[in-house]
């Protein structure tokens, strides 16, 4: 279970400003801070580990090109930077989906839960699981998707998600409910691995 690195407003403000001034080490720190998050987001969107890793690098390359024009929100700098970065990732994922048709995988209701076995079979099974999850997540709208990713991928609290998305906790709960209802319908009941 990944423990998200704490991201504070002060850290993000300092790193972004240093990056904008051309500090390469600050850029690397930002990468360390956000690379796994962006990777998981892209994995949840695309369901392909290799592709998600490639696009993660591409997100940061795009970020370098656009960082000069980015203005931090002084009220919530970390949230604004994070939202901006996720937006780049979302656009990249959309671009990729448009340019290349993703291999369609049937949403088998007998979806097994992934085990911890690193055997080739288990790896293949995990890939299939990820692909199905990605396809189900693709059926959500962007707000529902971000709530799901915040809650189950980044393990954020409702309050943190609300601050991140600029919404109330009630709205987050509502989005979470609707998203899970859709995902439950699409993924079906789980089959325990033997």
């Amino acid at each position: 279970m990944a423990v998200p690195t704490p991201v504070t407003d002060e850290t993000v403000t300092s790193l972004v400003l240093r990056c904008q001034r051309g500090d390469q080490s600050a850029l690397e720190q930002l990468y360390e801070l956000y690379a796994d998050r962006i990777y998981r987001y892209l994995l949840a969107r695309l369901g392909d580990e290799e592709l998600a890793a490639d696009l993660t690098t591409e997100v940061f390359v795009r970020m370098i090109g656009r960082l000069a024009g980015f203005r931090l929100n002084r009220q919530r700098p970390a949230a604004s930077f994070s939202a901006w970065l996720y937006r780049i990732a979302a656009n990249l994922a959309c671009d990729h989906r448009r340019s290349r048709r993703v291999v369609q995988v049937s949403l088998d209701p007998e979806l097994p839960l992934p085990g911890l076995d690193p055997a080739p079979e288990a790896v293949a099974e995990q890939r299939e699981t990820l692909a199905r999850l990605a396809q189900a997540i693709q059926a959500l709208n962007e707000e529902q998707r971000l709530v799901i990713i915040g809650k189950f991928v980044e393990e954020m609290s409702n309050a943190q998600i609300a601050a991140w998305l600029g919404k109330t906790e009630g709205a987050v709960k509502s989005l979470q409910h609707r998203a899970l209802r859709t995902l439950g319908r699409l993924l079906g009941p789980a089959k325990r691995p033997t």
């Binding site: 279970m1 990944a2 796994d36 189950f152 991928v153 993924l187």
Partner: peptide, 17 residues
């Protein structure tokens, strides 16, 4: 079904680059 979906989604949180 909602809790089952949530349990499956946890797999994503374990993913790292």
């Amino acid at each position: 079904p909602m809790l089952a979906a949530a349990a499956r989604l946890r797999v994503l949180s374990a993913q790292r680059l």
